[in-house]
């Protein structure tokens, strides 16, 4: 315990305690950096779509409107049509909001001077996963009735009756427990791992380039972790997008399963 709080030290390279990397002091009571990022994400999304919606819609889209329309079409074509089909198009605003919010919460991880993905804290992923859990269960109950829905979930049709002893507990756990848990953990752990990787390589480069002894050797070597840092930053842009995409796609898959049970 003590060692963790004081930080790790290997031959002069000090890794700070993890909570100083992740927990931020309150700027004003109850508001810290992560809170600010999540508010900013909602605000940026709102402003973007406000500008987009108020542009002249008759001419070819440009700027904010173009961006917003690309996002809408991406959600419709690449997420909903691929997973739920035409009947799922009513979910576009929900999935679009979710995608944009998660993406804008992810991206600060690589923006200089902010460098903290809001989703690297458990709060937002946990809430989103819980919301998805509530929404897909409610959709299932609304579409198939409470009895029909739980019958379809717990006793999937087409399974021999004797196997229900095995299948029912597995289905119960996988649908009602593992889905929201893995949804939250996937987003959170991906962003946390990316953030820690960036921190480690940034600290390593700093330690090597500002070395006090054997500077002739250590400073050129410091270029290597810096190059890796640059590569990882580019990689994190991809990861930020991919995690938002996967979260939204899985939500769409779960919603599709709740709307139309497998036959």
């Amino acid at each position: 315990m003590q060692a963790a709080e004081e930080g790790e030290s290997t031959r002069g390279f000090h890794f700070p305690p993890i909570n100083t990397l992740l927990r931020w002091k309150d700027i004003t009571p109850g508001i810290n950096k992560v809170v600010l990022i999540s508010i900013a994400a909602a605000l940026i999304g709102t402003v973007l779509f406000l500008i987009a919606a108020n542009r002249d819609h008759k001419t070819a889209p440009k700027g904010a409107r173009n961006l917003a329309e690309i996002a809408v079409e991406f959600i419709e074509k690449n997420i909903i049509m691929e997973t739920m089909g035409r009947s799922g198009l009513g979910w576009t605003p929900f999935l679009l909001t979710m995608f944009i919010f998660i993406y804008i919460c992810n991206v600060p991880g690589i923006i200089p001077f902010i460098q903290m993905p809001a989703t690297a804290r458990m709060g937002i992923p946990a809430f989103m996963a819980l919301l998805v859990w509530v929404v897909y269960n409610a959709t299932g109950i609304k579409n198939q009735g409470p009895i029909g829905y739980f019958k379809n979930v717990l006793f999937p049709p087409g399974v021999p009756k004797a196997l229900y002893i095995l299948v029912t507990p597995i289905e119960f756990i996988s649908t009602l427990v593992v889905r929201p848990f893995s949804l939250a953990v996937r987003l959170f752990a991906n962003m946390l791992a990316g953030h820690l990787l960036l921190v480690i390589f940034a600290l390593l480069s700093e330690a090597l380039i500002q070395a006090e002894t054997q500077r002739i050797f250590l400073i050129p070597i410091g270029v290597l972790p810096f190059g890796v840092l640059m590569f990882l930053t580019a990689f994190e842009i991809l990861v930020a997008f991919l995690q938002a995409y996967i979260f939204t796609t899985l939500t769409a898959v779960y919603l599709g399963m709740a709307t139309h049970p497998e036959h």
């Binding site: 963790a4 305690p17 993890i18 909570n19 893995s182 953990v185 996937r186 752990a189 991906n190 946390l192 791992a193 991919l242 995409y245 996967i246 796609t249 899985l250 898959v253």
Partner: peptide, 24 residues
């Protein structure tokens, strides 16, 4: 493919979370 990767990757990420839990 991305869906499959997401499901597979979840296992490694649970390992990562276990790592954080054990260590910190």
């Amino acid at each position: 493919m991305f869906l499959g990767v997401a499901f597979t990757e979840a296992l490694a990420l649970i390992g990562f979370v276990a790592f954080i839990l054990l260590k910190f």
